[in-house]
Design a protein around this nucleic acid. Sequence first.
DNA 1: TTGTGTTCCGGTAGCGTTACCGGTAACGCT
DNA 2: AGCGTTACCGGTAACGCTACCGGAACACAA
Lengths: 351, 351
Amino acid sequence: MIQSSESSESLTIADIARLAQVSVSTVSRILNGKPDVAEVTRQRVLKVIHDTGYSPDVSAQRLASGATVAKSRVITLLFPMDHAEFTQLELDFFIGAAASCSKHDTFFNLMTEPMDADHLLNLFRSGQTDGVILMQIRMDDWRPELLTRHDYPFVMIGRTSDNQHYRYIDLDFDAAVETAIGYLVEQGHRRIGFIARPASARAQQIGPSVRIMSGYQRALERYRLAPLYREVKLTVPDVYEATLELLDEAPELTAIFTVHGASSPGAIRALRDRDRLVPDDCSVVALATERIAQLVTPALTAINFPTDTMGYQAATMLINALQQPSAPVEQILLQPRLAVRESASTPVGAT
Amino acid sequence: MIQSSESSESLTIADIARLAQVSVSTVSRILNGKPDVAEVTRQRVLKVIHDTGYSPDVSAQRLASGATVAKSRVITLLFPMDHAEFTQLELDFFIGAAASCSKHDTFFNLMTEPMDADHLLNLFRSGQTDGVILMQIRMDDWRPELLTRHDYPFVMIGRTSDNQHYRYIDLDFDAAVETAIGYLVEQGHRRIGFIARPASARAQQIGPSVRIMSGYQRALERYRLAPLYREVKLTVPDVYEATLELLDEAPELTAIFTVHGASSPGAIRALRDRDRLVPDDCSVVALATERIAQLVTPALTAINFPTDTMGYQAATMLINALQQPSAPVEQILLQPRLAVRESASTPVGAT
DNA sequence: TTGTGTTCCGGTAGCGTTACCGGTAACGCT
DNA sequence: AGCGTTACCGGTAACGCTACCGGAACACAA
């Protein structure tokens, strides 16, 4: 690129046309990869474009092309940060989604403000975004229905209770809980403490919160275990307290399953303060990203929560849907996968 | 808002004008908060806007208003993810920046693809962004100069070696290292292992890598310590290895300072495998975000790396700069602050 | 009366692009 | 020669909005 470093003033398609001795139409055709243009002309124009460092104005493009066929797309990830205590977990979703967008030549937008229906619709109506990724999905979430009615593209990370027609990617939380507890039972544990997400979240019908508890119910029945759990805010101090409570309620417990890796140090510290070493005197299994699982000492035996992959796939699904709106609705429900690390073992005195 | 739920077809300013019995100009004036419009008219039009759920097309706005005075701004955070091993650290920058944008009614964009000069300029030329936040700044970074020459607004998280005229926010890494080592010396440690960022990063003149080593040099001189360090990739296994090497080289060491909280479990595990408990037999001090410091067991005594705040402030600086381009150039160099937690103590046998 | 503001509002020319229509030249075929 | 057909290209009306100009209506003073 020849730096005509003073020419900072913005070029238009007309300038290029003039310099290349062709019409604007021709330049536009070339820009959009239309046929109907001689190879020699194309080359000449492309050279001018390259030499001048011209780059078409996206606003004008979007306006002229009816904002639907635009070349450069933008998708928005909606992550309401209202209920404060969010964690690294979410962050990895962002990274994954951003990576997919970069790869697919799409702008990636992140909005953290909670949104009402008007705001959400305005996002589309004003042409600010071509599609959204919804997070924090509730069982009875109103957003998918609204967006569908207006024919605005979206995908969910999570799913509603009735999700026949929506694109989504989600982890099978019911199964995850069953798998984790099943693993502990298999190791010989019979008295297992369970630390779940706050009851308030469940009351609000947040998908994972609801499904985690239903999975727990199923696990209890299947393995004929007595319930022993706490629903708490997933912070280190809260989990610490909850663990102490569980130990008081059932001093004989030999294992703990917590649904949140990043607050599991709370459990581990509580156990340590009660003179129980992990994993020798008490096993700990979590639901956690690999990153977090590695970070905790001892490294967590955990159901893998592949957040970055999920973010990547969600964005990819959305981008595909934008390109071929008629494409079939993809739905991905990830099955849980347990990674054995250091924090769990067979209970003392087991066969 | 009255849901005329079928009217999904996009409204224009002309529709509003017609419905409100005024001219397009008047609607535009109201939309942009210009004076020169009677209160009663304003109310009437606003009611129509509200009832119909109209929302102006940003593309058209940007196009018409010369893309400079646009109402809704968009800023882009450039974080090249090329050199793979990035960590939670960066993520918190994103969150902070996104939060600031949400608060300031600005679109927050995240791009993870590395960029050459052309791409960077096109971002502005095509009207896709109004300003950028640069990360991964090198001592001799070419980007600030380029953007300045073209008069495109930006701020850096980090700083170059010569940064007189650029907006930036950065942590004083030299001072951070001196502070950490000073603290350990104060506690009575004399033989201190140091784990720094990879030599390759320093060779590439990445700011923090360079400054961290210069800070280390200064600390050695000031406290008359013998050098004892490793420059390694900041992953748990690499840090583990590095720690073992340090222990081999200087079995008498009583403390380790590592510049990266998220890989510090590597050090802690290496010490444990050599039968040294933290902090009793060996102290560990790190440079880490609060979040990470809390996550590691034992909780890390660490120089605080306030990444989310830095991201927030960077975005805020940029937004301000967009609003008042003439405003003085802000430069923020954060001084290190040590937070004492559990991972460091006085060495055995100290006075 | 005329002049001088003020306050409010409408008309319209762009902004940079694309979509569409139509035109010209060259070529091939009957 | 005459008539399609194809390959290429130019002209221009949108797209939805803002900026600017100018005009109507009214008030008030000289």
